[in-house]
Computed example of a mutant assay.
Amino acid sequence: MAKTTRRTWIPDQHGAWAMLAVPFLAGTLLAPRPGWTHALLFGAWLLGYVAVFHGQQWLRLHARGLRSAGRHVLPALVSGAAFAAVGVPLAVLHPWLVPAALLASPFVLVNTHYARRGRERALVNGLAAVVPACGMLLVAARLGGLGPAGAWPAALACLLYFAGTVPYVKTMIRERNSRAYRTGSVACHAAALVVAVLLSPWLALPFTAYLVRAAVLPGRGLKVPVVGAVEVAGSAALLVSLPLLF
C-alpha cells in the first residue's frame, strides 16, 4: 500500500529531482547567511512542483477524455494546499518572492501547454523547465544575503549543465538512433564548456567530463539506471564545485 501511495503521489520524473535540488542547494551554500527559512522555501519549492506536476497530468489526461485523470486531483489539491500553507507566510516575510515566482510563470505556462498536448518529452519543453529550476539558485542565494550580482555565475553554470542534459538524455533513450541529436548534444556541450571556462577556469574539469560523456556514451546501449547514475554523479560534481569556485 505504501509503495502504491508513493507511485500515486510522488512524480516519477527522476531527472527532475536533481534539477530541483542542485541549484537550490548550491544557492543556499553560496549564501553568507543560510537559515531556517531556506528549509521552508525548499519545502514550498518541492510541494509546488508536485502540485504543478499533478495539475498538468490531470490536464493532459482530461483533454483526452480519460477517466484516469481523476487520480491526479487529490494529490494536486493536497500538495497545492500544503504549498500555500508554507509559501504564503514566506511571501509575507519576504515579499520579493512574489515577483520572483511571477518570473517563473511563463516557463510553467510553456510546460502546461506541452503537457496538455501530451508532448512533455519535447526538447523545448525540457529546456523551458530548466530555466526556473536554475533560477532558484538566485532565489536561495538572495534569501541568505547574496544578491544576483554575486550569484549569477553559479546560476549560469547550472543552466549550462542542466540545459545540456536535456538533449544528452534523449540521445541515450528516446533519440538513441538520431545522428542529428547526437551532433547537437555534443555541440551544445562544447559551447557550454567554453562559457563555463569564462566563468571559472576550474569549471573546465566537470564540463570537460560532461562533454566527453555526451560524445562517448550514446550508442553504447547503457541501461536506463546506468544513465541515471551517471547524471547523479554529474549533478553531485556540480553541486560540490559551485560553492568552492564562487
Rank of each mutant, 00 (worst) to 15 (best):
P167D: 07
G221W: 04
A133C: 12
G118D: 05
F24M: 08
F107C: 11
M1D: 12
R117P: 00
V22P: 04
A76P: 06
R64V: 09
L41M: 12
A128E: 05
F42H: 01
A82Y: 10
W96M: 01
V73R: 15
Q13S: 10
A191F: 11
V226A: 14
L103C: 14
T165M: 08
K170H: 14
P201A: 06
L244H: 03
A26Q: 02
P89S: 05
R182D: 11
G118P: 03
V216A: 13
V216G: 07
L74M: 14
L239A: 10
A91D: 10
T165G: 03
G118A: 03
A214G: 04
V52T: 12
V110G: 03
A84S: 05
A44R: 02
Q56A: 15
Y210E: 02
R179Y: 03
R33V: 08
Y49H: 11
L138N: 00
A151D: 06
V92H: 10
G144P: 06
V226G: 00
Q57I: 01
L47V: 13
A51Y: 11
W9I: 15
L160I: 09
L198M: 14
V92Q: 08
T183D: 08
V22I: 15
R142M: 01
G234V: 05
A101P: 00
A149D: 12
W9T: 09
V110I: 15
V186Q: 04
K170W: 07
A85P: 06
T171Q: 08
L137K: 00
T208W: 01
V86Q: 09
G135A: 11
K170I: 09
G147I: 06
S241W: 04
V139Y: 00
G80L: 06
S79F: 10
R71N: 09
A115W: 09
W202R: 13
G65F: 07
R213M: 07
A190N: 06
V197C: 08
V227S: 06
H72E: 09
R142D: 01
H14Y: 15
A154D: 01
A229T: 11
A104N: 04
L160E: 08
H72W: 05
Y168G: 02
G80S: 07
Y161A: 13
L211T: 13
H54F: 06
S79Q: 07
W96F: 05
A236Y: 04
L160F: 08
H62W: 13
A192Y: 02
S178E: 07
R67A: 15
W45G: 06
L77H: 00
H189T: 03
A91G: 08
L61K: 10
W17L: 04
M1K: 07
V108N: 00
H94Q: 12
W152S: 06
P99D: 03
L59F: 12
G55V: 13
V195Q: 03
V232E: 05
R176C: 05
W17D: 09
A76I: 13
T28I: 02
H113T: 14
G184N: 11
G15E: 14
C158N: 10
F162I: 03
H62P: 00
R176F: 01
T5Q: 13
A192Q: 06
M1P: 10
T5R: 09
A233S: 08
G145F: 11
L239D: 07
L199M: 04
L103K: 01
P32W: 10
A63W: 05
Y49A: 02
A81P: 03
G118R: 01
G228H: 11
